[in-house]
Design a protein around this nucleic acid. Structure first.
Length: 197
DNA sequence: AAAATGATCCTT
DNA sequence: AGGATCATTTTC
């Protein structure tokens, strides 16, 4: 079942935890790719020094975060890689969840071609990698996740809450006290994580 | 107008 | 441990 708007317009940490186990799907002219989410990080607006919308910074890049949840926030990092976030909560709350790793499901051959590797566990085990594998780029900025091109589905099988581990976020050393917030959620034991829990 | 800065990945 | 590489943001 496709996730609808009401899934996205809620509390960000609740959504982040519930995103583990959901399936991300992207339909392109080249074909369909999909993967099961196994790692995410929450970025919670003005109060979070690690967030792009820290202090309510509103620019061309962060603007989509200020709308309602259920839209894609895509940005280029280090001049080379795209990262995909899911905008969460309601209007004027600039919050989002970064998708950090997936276990590939559909379109694995296409992913291998795009990523130039044959190792299936090296296709989507990082935020830049999964965007390359699924051809998620600037064109996806602001995409409505309640549409039919880029969206999420619930597999049906619920994840045991004990299998979801909360840890510190990755590579945000610049974020002062926020470096210690346990806002990264991973599926325990997954072979496709970007780093050890 | 110019400088600084990365929510990363790959190679050594 | 270091370099690639550039859009976006911040600063002058």
């Amino acid at each position: 079942m496709k996730l609808e708007r009401d899934f996205y317009t809620r509390d960000t940490l609740t959504i982040a935890r519930q995103l583990i186990g959901k399936v991300l799907i992207h339909r392109t002219d080249e074909g369909i790719t999909s993967g099961r989410i196994v790692e995410v990080e929450a970025y919670i607006g003005p109060e979070d020094k690690a967030s792009h919308s820290h202090k309510g910074i509103r620019t061309g890049r962060t603007n989509i975060q200020y709308g309602p949840g259920g839209y894609a926030y895509i940005y280029l990092i280090y001049g080379m890689y795209y990262c995909m976030n899911i905008v969460t909560n309601v209007e004027e709350k600039p919050e989002a969840v970064l998708i950090r790793a997936l276990e590939p499901i559909d379109g694995i051959e296409l992913m291998k071609k795009r990523r130039k590797t044959n190792n299936p566990i090296n296709l989507c085990n990082g935020p830049g990698k999964l965007c390359t594998a699924m051809a998620i780029d600037k064109q996806c900025y602001g995409a409505d996740l309640c549409g039919s091109t880029l969206y999420l589905e619930d597999e049906g099988a619920a994840i045991d809450q004990e299998m979801i581990i909360a840890t510190k976020r990755i590579n945000i050393d610049y974020a002062k006290e926020a470096v210690d917030y346990p806002w990264r959620f991973v599926l325990s034991g997954s072979r496709c994580l970007s780093a050890k829990p």
